[in-house]
Design a protein around this nucleic acid. Structure first.
Lengths: 184, 184
DNA sequence: GTGCATTGCGCAATGT
DNA sequence: GACATTGCGCAATGCA
């Protein structure tokens, strides 16, 4: 009973029918170029692929198979599949019919789930911190950058002053015919 | 806060996910030193609040109410509440028992859900782009910073050289008793 | 194969 | 009331 979802998925994916939608996503992914219009697409889980490929994301794609929630399963099935359509039961598209009988009621399943949930929380926390750090770093670098810019301005100006002084002396020196033949 | 043990709790169902290749990329990118510890959070959806508030995340908290998934609801109830404990039915904590009859089967519900799903995808895409931009900005700033540092080194050195020259000339000038009384 | 880490996704609560 | 955010759990997948 717990595989119903999977079946639905499979039958749903039947629309795609191409289990090898292949890369395509790796293409636009480089974080160095990045185009504004349609961000990094990642071949979601449905048939939105095409849409996204065309930068038409966020369009209300067919919600066919993603129904339910604990509520009446039967009614959902009725809602998403006409009562006579049992095609999804056919192993046509490699339905995970016997994909290891890991009942969702099994203790092992729960243990696995719980472990993953913990890992997920941890991972996300890590991600949040990383993002925060990056933001702070960017801000910090920006500040430092301004200071450096200012420093450069000061140095540049000082340089000009010195050069001016030097040229003056040079002129004075030549005018006086003094012995001043050092560098420059 | 929220009504403890949201009573019915979500349930989800096996989500989709096509057999096609998934993204997986854009991950590594971090170059940051994240530390392991707690995390910011607020009122999630369950009763873990306390744990996390104390920075004790990731501990295998009681999975009590989150069990199930499309699978047997009855068995879950039995599993998570002893058959005689119906306290959760009491309006003690204002259980959203009748929190508006928005049947999950209603068309309106599905419409709402689908719209939210679209909004969520959009929002996450936006977030991803934002993060990427921040990373790029940090990198860019870092590069610029190095260039500025180098520029400063050059200017500083040049300054020293000029100053040296000036002092030399000054000495030479005084030695020669030449007429060099410009500024400085 | 086992176990944790990542990631996309939908759900629900909450914010705007 | 609609859309935007955010935390969460699920499942697939990456990875060691």
């Amino acid at each position: 009973m717990e595989w119903v979802g999977s079946y639905q998925v499979q039958s749903h994916n039947a629309n795609i029918s191409n289990p090898a939608v292949s890369s395509s996503d790796l293409a636009g992914m480089d974080m160095l170029s990045y185009s504004p219009s349609q961000g990094l697409l990642r071949v979601g889980g449905e048939e939105r692929v095409d849409e996204q490929m065309l930068g038409l994301s966020y369009l209300p794609y067919n919600p066919s198979c993603l129904s339910n929630s604990s509520s009446s399963l039967s009614s959902n099935l009725q809602q998403n599949h006409n009562p006579q359509d049992y095609s999804f039961l056919l192993p046509t598209l490699r339905a995970p019919l016997t994909k290891r009988s890991i009942s969702k009621d099994s203790a092992e399943y729960r243990v696995r789930r719980e472990r993953n949930n913990i890992a997920v929380r941890k991972s996300r926390d890590k991600a949040r911190r990383r993002i925060l750090l990056t933001q702070q770093r960017a801000l910090q670098l920006q500040e430092e950058n301004q200071k450096l810019q200012i420093r450069i301005s000061q140095l540049t100006q000082e340089m000009d002053t010195l050069k001016h002084i030097l040229s003056q002396r040079h002129l004075a020196g030549t005018e006086d015919g003094a012995a001043v033949g050092s560098s420059m």
